[in-house]
Design a protein around this nucleic acid. Structure first.
Lengths: 329, 329
DNA sequence: ATGAAAGCGCTAACAA
DNA sequence: TTGTTAGCGCTTTCAT
């Protein structure tokens, strides 16, 4: 088939391409995949995952996908980091540069990273962003959750639980990260649309730190005793402890975004009623699959976004292994 | 590799097989798939889908999967039927018998069907059951929903909405079908486990007929005015109309299993609060994928069950196209 | 009964 | 710059 070498005169090329489309020609991806085995592709993975439980499931999804794709002869080269230091991430990218054919990364939204992504792209290494996207870069594709929808769902669910009337406090992680902004935006959108009876008492940053969350929650409860609903994005333990100590457990309905072992424990205790889960296992699994597809077939502009949808989790549909991994895929 | 022809003495075969396992040999499914293209496999599909909206999404999932698997050179041969007439289903099976390599079927749970499945199996046509399983047959695999869990989730969610106290009426479809039994069983299990404050006022069959459902609901509301929650399995329109006419809309919380255009409309009106959805699109999509896997690689006993999990749907995460099809897969 | 070879659709290396 | 061929891992057919 068309093999892009030399000049075939762009005119005839166009003609042939059109002809092919008309005849319904589609390159067989099995043939491609089999042939591509000889290349021994390596997928680099860089995750800002250290010390963040959220990524445990994602990593398991990545590992599972790696196993399930052995037929393609691909390999995964892992690097993890703690926190969001731009230079550290750059260093990891440089380290992997010569050894990989494609990069999967939880990209920090900074122009230096975007630049590096572009330079990798130029040198033929496609970059796919995972979980957090980056602006103004030539990344091939983004695999992530629908964060705005997550916020909307949280509001809708809280609306049902509270029958439309609530004094809501929102505890979020650092608002420096785009996704946390968006989540709250979704929540507020849904409130405007449908829940005039909701009043947002306060939005505060819990910094994903239980001690800080505890202090701030305690203070909030003292100042605003009317609060009867919480939408929390992390540091669940600190928040719940403050609520418990204030003797408000029965009075306050808590909804969490994402699940982790702590959240599951608190759901078992009945303190957290539900969670909106962005399926990290699936994100990881799908990310590797997309990387393979990129290497073997390429990814078109229309497939630029691969959005994993949200799941409402309550005690009855939560995985007892503290993970959202499906039984089998 | 091993090619099962002639006698290689079962002893050495065993030895080689063990050796292979130790060396971690795994046949490459891409090679297999590519080679199997020459066979032009045909997957037969028989669905009891006519006049049942639930199957619309499942059929779309099947069609999408057929397209996504063109690389394998497979084709799908469709037959649909209305209702659950055993002889009719047998006739369709006979009709397809000579023309297919594998059969996907919403099997009616009857020994004559089981027999036919066994005879197909003998003659090399693997049978996979979709959505409804059948007892005592040699079917290769079952793709379906976790019905018991669906019931448990419904109870758990209702528990949250009602804060643990409710007079519940359950309207189910025909109890002749195993799955409806199981769904109620799941609901009752969860009630026993966790919701002593729930009282089941009545369980009645709505027969998936809006008129019947309307009459029975009306009667029920007259006799038991304390009812404040409904768990419904079908005929949503009839039930909701009766409730509305009785002026109890605001007093009664309704949860549905599965979504369909009617249920979505009623959710938009605020009458139905949530639905536990068994993802028919995914079931159909996955079913074709499993059939392909069966034809190309075979399916081992440990993969006998392929369970699609349930999704809690509220207004904020329901697909506006009235379908649970994902944006992209 | 068994080993050799062709071919599934594709890519890449090799000649021409 | 082009056409040809070998080979990815497997199944099946064809000689032996």
């Amino acid at each position: 088939m068309l093999n892009n070498r030399g000049r075939v005169s762009s005119e005839t090329e166009e003609k042939v391409r059109k002809m092919a489309a008309e005849l319904g020609y589609k390159p067989n991806s099995l043939g491609k995949a089999l042939a591509s085995r000889k290349k021994h592709y390596i997928i680099g993975v860089i995750l800002c995952s250290e010390g963040n439980e959220f990524y445990n499931d994602m990593i398991r999804g990545i590992e599972q996908a790696e196993q399930d794709n052995t037929d393609y002869g691909i390999n995964v080269l892992f690097r993890t980091m703690k926190g969001y230091d731009v230079d550290h991430q750059l260093r990891l990218m440089n380290e992997l540069e010569g050894r990989i054919n494609c990069l999967l990364i939880t990209a920090i939204n900074h122009h230096k990273i975007a630049q590096k992504i572009n330079s990798l792209t130029e040198s033929g290494i496609g970059v796919l962003t995972l979980n957090t996207d980056i602006e103004n870069s030539k990344r091939v594709c983004h695999i992530g959750a629908n964060v705005i929808e997550s916020g909307r769902i949280a509001c809708g669910l809280l609306g049902l639980l509270m029958r439309g009337k609530a004094q809501v406090a929102i505890a979020t992680n650092s608002l420096k990260l785009l996704e946390h902004h968006q989540r709250i935006e979704g929540f507020l959108q849904a409130k405007e649309d449908k829940y005039p009876g909701f009043h947002i008492v306060e939005i505060f940053e819990a910094e994903d730190d239980d001690m800080i969350a505890y202090m701030r929650t305690k203070k909030l409860l003292a100042q605003k005793p009317g609060v009867d609903a919480f939408y929390i994005g992390g540091a669940a333990l600190g928040i719940c402890r403050a609520i418990e100590e204030a003797g408000c457990s029965d009075k306050i309905t808590i909804i969490s975004c994402d699940t982790n072992p702590t959240v599951v424990r608190l759901m078992n205790k009945g303190m957290i009623k539900a969670a909106i889960c962005q399926q990290p296992w699936h994100q990881g699994y799908k990310a590797i699959n997309m990387a393979v597809q990129y290497l073997v077939n390429g990814i078109s502009k229309s497939e630029e976004y691969c959005i994993i949808d949200n799941q409402i989790k309550i005690l009855e549909n939560i995985d007892t292994l503290f993970s959202d991994q499906p039984l089998r895929l």
